[in-house]
Amino acid sequence: MKYLVADFNIACAAELMQTARDLVADLAGEAGFESFEDTPEGIRGYVQTDALDKQTLDGGIADFPMPDVHITYTICPAEDKNWNASWEASGFDPVIVDRRIIICDAKRPIPDTDNMTPIFIDACQAFGTGTHQTTRMIVSALLSLDLDGRRVLDCGCGTGILGIAASKMGAKGVVGYDIDEWSVENTEHNCQINHVENMEVLHGDALVLSHVSGVFDVVLANINRNILLHDLETFKDIMASGALLVMSGFYEADIPMLLAKATELKLKEVGRKTDGEWACLMLQLA
């Protein structure tokens, strides 16, 4: 994949810089950016060449909510390499969810699982290790469901962590998809190391679901707000009667907008979780 790197120069008072960085990362994330790092002048972001929505980016900067902050940016092709390599090499500490699931770095020695169900993740250019609030909330929501014999869809599967968790909780079959080919390969790899044999992984966006037969009892989506708004109708069309949609990847402030769209599609809120500013919604199809 080809990436672009953008350097955002943020001119503001020192005490405003971190808040401004967070807001720039939020609006850039809506424009397709995947990862960020702080710089002395502001923040640097990375986006796949084909994923950049420059109109959204420029609009977000023009409407920036901090009047005393001035933002400019430059963008150029990035060196073609794995920008997560250093993070992947250092790995992550075990993540425990509700004392029932322990998510472990597959590169590290196996920890004491203390009768919890282990999930081993070898992250390679893909999102989803359990260290982020959104992943943990969806795994926690899954633990509240009876997945025995259910068919599950993992939208934007990343490392495959959510689909793998669903399989280990009793799902009879899981389908995952991701627009990133590396994520598809990483999910397949993580299925192998977790001995999950009932998860099929597809390459593409939500349009790939037109090639999937049947409907799903549970749909999982840890994706940013704008993609969720765009794809909600597609998700609804492949949900069985009474099926659940568990989604995160957005802020608590985004809930009213998402619920308005869900109501149009006859998806009713049946639960929610929050962790800091992040949120997770559970919606049921009537």
Rank of each mutant, 00 (worst) to 15 (best):
P94Y: 01
V208E: 02
A206P: 00
E30Q: 13
I164D: 00
V69C: 09
D275I: 04
L16E: 11
G271P: 07
V246S: 13
I43L: 12
A221D: 03
E88P: 12
K54L: 11
T72G: 12
A165P: 00
K268R: 13
A279I: 06
L244V: 10
H230C: 15
G170N: 01
I164R: 02
D105P: 03
D105I: 03
C155S: 12
Y177S: 12
G173E: 08
L259M: 14
H195I: 05
A6Q: 02
V97Y: 01
W87S: 09
L202G: 04
A14W: 01
I223Q: 05
E200R: 13
L285S: 14
R100D: 02
L220D: 04
D122I: 06
L23C: 05
I161F: 10
N82L: 07
E277L: 13
L283Y: 10
G156P: 06
I121N: 09
N84H: 14
K168C: 00
D93R: 10
L153D: 06
K273R: 15
E181M: 06
V270W: 03
N222Q: 03
R136G: 15
R272E: 09
L244W: 13
A25Q: 15
D178K: 00
H132I: 13
A243H: 09
R136D: 08
T159A: 05
G59C: 02
V219Y: 01
E181H: 01
P65S: 00
Q125R: 13
E188L: 09
D275V: 03
T72N: 15
A260K: 14
W87Y: 13
E37D: 12
Q48A: 14
D148V: 12
W83K: 06
K266P: 03
E88V: 10
P40R: 14
A260F: 15
E30P: 00
R21M: 06
H211P: 00
I102H: 01
M257F: 12
D68P: 00
V215P: 01
E34F: 02
F36G: 12
G276R: 12
G149Y: 10
